[in-house]
């Protein structure tokens, strides 16, 4: 399994903010979800990958080629294989849907007009309407149609599903699933809607305050990890059980209980059958990891 994107020790210095030592890979056939709070560094990471900002340090390999310091013209050629969707529909407000298609066809060598037309129809986008007349959801559908009609190998999505209603979001996720079903394709997707990543992502990377907090397989969160709801006595029992080394569990105090993030909910349930434990999702995993205290 080859990596379409390899990021190693990426750093970027801004006045008042530092992105530091971000490392991850996007293997072919996989979806990597990028999560974190606002201002965590997700967009800076994506901008560095796309060449919109110059990294202060580290290495970014796109399709096996180092892009840091690469001549701009070569970088533009590499982006022929990358489809991009940002958090807003960025096309000029007075362009119609058809005109956006014409412009994108002039940008991408592999542009498929047939695919664009098919996606425009599937999303019920009005061809003659200007971008400024489209709702936010429609704008995002147009952006996604453009990114896919470019027939890229790698999709980079920055909050691409924001603004879509639940039905449109499910439809978008289906389209992304179809895209990544081709084992030579991959997706890097930042999103605040972690339920989308629960459904789609193979790996989750969390950034906070410019630092990488965790990088794990989604299955280890949704398939294995759990959140135990402990009363005071339960909590003491877990702490004194000796099953978990100090500093390995995250806990978060609630008004009536304490939540404990456990790495294996099945093992936990066996050891503590009287303590209710539910499966973790990305949201609870991230919350407890970022806000929780180490036990």
């Amino acid at each position: 399994m080859s990596n379409l994107l390899n990021v190693e020790n990426l750093s970027k210095h801004y006045e008042g903010f530092d992105l530091q030592d971000i490392s991850f890979a996007v293997p072919a056939g996989n979806v990597v979800g990028l999560v974190g709070s606002n201002g965590a560094g997700k967009s800076t990471t994506i901008k560095s990958i796309l060449g919109l900002v110059r990294p202060s340090g580290g290495s970014i390999q796109l399709f096996g080629e180092e892009t840091v310091g690469m001549p701009d013209s070569r970088f533009a050629q590499l982006r022929q294989r990358v489809g991009v969707v940002f958090d807003t529909c960025a096309f000029p407000a007075e362009s119609t849907v058809d005109e956006v298609g014409r412009f994108m066809a002039a940008c991408y060598r592999n542009w498929s007009t047939a695919k664009f037309n098919q996606l425009v129809e599937r999303s019920a986008l009005p061809r003659r309407k200007c971008v400024r007349e489209l709702s936010r959801g429609m704008g995002m559908k147009l952006s996604l149609a453009c990114a896919l009609a470019a027939q890229p190998d790698l999709l980079i999505l920055d909050e691409a599903t924001a603004g879509l209603d639940p039905i449109a979001r499910d439809e978008a996720l289906n389209i992304l699933r179809e895209f990544v079903a081709d084992e030579s394709h991959a997706i890097l997707m930042s999103s605040h809607i972690t339920s989308d990543l629960d459904k789609l992502a193979d790996y989750i990377l969390c950034i906070d305050g410019g630092h990488m907090v965790f990088s794990v397989e989604t299955d280890s969160i949704t398939g294995l990890a759990g959140v135990a709801q402990c009363r005071q006595a339960d909590f003491l029992a877990v702490a004194e059980s000796g099953l978990y080394a100090p500093g390995t569990l995250r806990t978060l105090k609630q008004p009536l209980s304490t939540l404990v993030l456990v790495p294996d909910r099945f093992a936990f349930a066996q050891a503590f059958p009287n303590i209710p434990v539910e499966h973790a999702d990305i949201d609870s995993f991230m919350n407890l990891t970022l806000k929780g205290e180490l036990l």
């Binding site: 901008k47 796309l50 060449g51 919109l52 701009d72 013209s73 970088f75 533009a76 050629q77 982006r79 022929q80 990358v82 991009v84 940002f86 807003t88 529909c89 960025a90 096309f91 000029p92 407000a93 994108m104 940008c107 991408y108 060598r109 980079i156």
Partner: peptide
């Protein structure tokens, strides 16, 4: 407007283009 200039550079257009 709408970060068009940033998005444009994420496409296969070089800055020279």
């Amino acid at each position: 407007a709408s970060n068009w200039q940033g998005f444009r550079l994420a496409l296969p257009l070089s800055r020279a283009d």
